[in-house]
Amino acid sequence: MSPIKIANTQYEVIDLIKNRWSPRSFAEKALDAATVETILEAGSWAPSANNSQPWRFIYALRGTTGFDKLLATLAPGNLPWAKNAAALVATIGIRETPDTQQKNHYYMHDVGMATSFMLLQGLEMNVYAHIMAGFNKQQAAEVAALPANEEAVSILALGYIDSAEKLDEPYKTRELTPRSRNPITTIAAHLD
């Protein structure tokens, strides 16, 4: 089994956050549509500027043509392990509202918020996610038939965790390397 990489935090944060990490080793166990849609619904409840909800999610389960289409958009470095995910989800950002053509300057932030909600919901269900920016955005837009006002933001690999031993290098070492973050003193400052 892959290690559960619990974050060693300076301050006490909730276990769901401490336990979340991005594995590359996924088990053969399948996900069903209801499980994926539960995770996606969690994303739909994220906050967004003016409650615009500038996101969509397009998913495919392993073993389907849709999965193969999303998989084909991935960068070569993600293919060796992402092919074993139980599902792939394309997160889509809506740059401007279709009816008014008003630009949403916060859509990327809001899609990120929705994605974080999905990661935590998945973990609560013992489903892990690995977010990928390494994919061909144009190809993903074509696969998903996105209109001009929408953009593929990331692709998530979802699944149940498996042994790091089944991964080839360099992925095995990455799977086993302890998690780390910059200390709070380097990322935060108290303003008097």
Rank of each mutant, 00 (worst) to 15 (best):
P54W: 04
N50R: 13
A87R: 09
P76H: 04
T100G: 02
N104H: 09
T64G: 00
P76Y: 03
W81E: 11
E28D: 14
K103W: 04
K137N: 04
K137L: 00
A42P: 03
E96N: 13
N126A: 15
A33I: 15
M132T: 05
A75E: 11
R56Q: 14
R24T: 11
L120C: 07
N19T: 10
L71V: 05
Q101A: 14
F57A: 13
L123F: 10
A129L: 06
R95N: 05
V143A: 06
R56M: 01
P76F: 06
L70K: 08
P80I: 13
A129Q: 09
R62H: 14
L119D: 07
S44I: 02
E96D: 11
A72H: 06
A114V: 02
H109D: 12
L71Y: 12
Q138M: 12
D99C: 00
M108C: 09
A87M: 11
S25T: 04
E37G: 03
V89S: 02
P98I: 09
L88S: 07
E124P: 00
V127W: 03
F57D: 05
L71R: 03
W21Q: 10
D32F: 11
A85K: 07
I17K: 01
I39N: 05
D68R: 15
Q53W: 04
A129P: 04
P54D: 12
R24I: 12
R95F: 00
F67T: 13
V111F: 04
S52W: 10
H109L: 14
Q102D: 12
Q139V: 06
S22Y: 10
A86I: 06
S116L: 15
N78T: 09
V111P: 06
K18W: 01
L70C: 06
G77S: 10
K83Y: 01
Q102S: 08
N136W: 11
F57W: 14
L70V: 03
W81L: 12
V111A: 07
L120T: 08
R56H: 11
P23E: 04
A90C: 14
E41I: 08
G134C: 01
Y59C: 01
A27P: 01
N104T: 07
K83S: 05
M113E: 14
N84P: 01
M125V: 02
E28L: 11
S22A: 15
P47D: 02
G63D: 10
V143E: 06
T64W: 05
H130S: 04
N78P: 06
N136Q: 09
K137Q: 13
L119M: 15
W21F: 14
V127H: 03
F26V: 07
